[in-house]
Amino acid sequence: METRLSNYYEKGIKYFFGLIAGTSILLLFLIFSLLFREGLGVFSNVGVTNFILGTRWLPVSETPFFGALPMIIGSIIVTLGAGMLAIPAGISIAVYLAEVAPRSVREVAKAVIELLAGIPSVVYGFLGLTVLAPVIKDLLNLPSALTAFTAALVLAIMSLPTVVSISEDALDAVPREYREASLALGATKWETTVKIVLPSARSGLMAASMLGLGRAIGETMAVLMVAGNAMIIPHFIFDPVRTITASIAAEMGETVQGGLHYQALFGLGVVLFTITFVINLITDLIFTRTSSVKRGTSL
């Protein structure tokens, strides 16, 4: 009797968790289909190439234009800029925490850095606008500091916690025997770190970088506040840019549901989704490739 009861109990739990997992997948599917259902209209009305490669975005004009290229390039530039700042800095911090810092410092520092991830993005944007922008303007003698560079800098600070936290985990997961063997063979601590630990952790470091980029490209508030929002293809890092996310946020309020402008904003959502999907795919490929290589050779 008791075994039957616990059997039901087990089954109940199993189905409960199955249901929850199923709901989240269903939700994802619904979001996905909504995005495409609402967004595909613009691709058929405007044309895929006109939408993605068009350079004029005049959604409320008498003859509207829906060319998203300035925003696509804007998003990519800001994201890459943020990555170029956040990834080297993040990995360096992770190396310090994992390899150099004493345990006490490491525990505290990691907690503090992870706390940074909890600050709402609008706060970063506000600090960027009121503190960072005037400083950059004066330092670099620019007419205005609301540029791609400022946006990239703010995004870099925002994605730093992600990069540091995951990189540190990856470095931590490198077996101690590797380090001991290297040191025993006479390598210095620096040589061990650069030639043994970092290469061993490279899949984790790649994942950290990609997740950092993912965090940056999806960010809205902070970018809207500091990027300057000019609908042009930027020629250099101190031009103002408009990102995909900023456009969706700024323009969604005024669109008539089902109208072409509305569809165009969902179309932008589809483009953004595709970009993040590709980033995730690359991360996944790196993960599976390196982990199977590892299994094949080192064990």
């Binding site: 004009s61 606008l129 009121t130 007419p143 205005s144 809207l224 506040m225 609908m231 103002p240």
Partner: peptide, 28 residues
Amino acid sequence: EDEEFAGNARSAASNAAMANSIKGEETA
């Protein structure tokens, strides 16, 4: 007169953001 704004015009999200930019930028 219903012509389009210059392509490189920056857009401010609110009256307050506009005021903030113009307060600090000499050529705005």
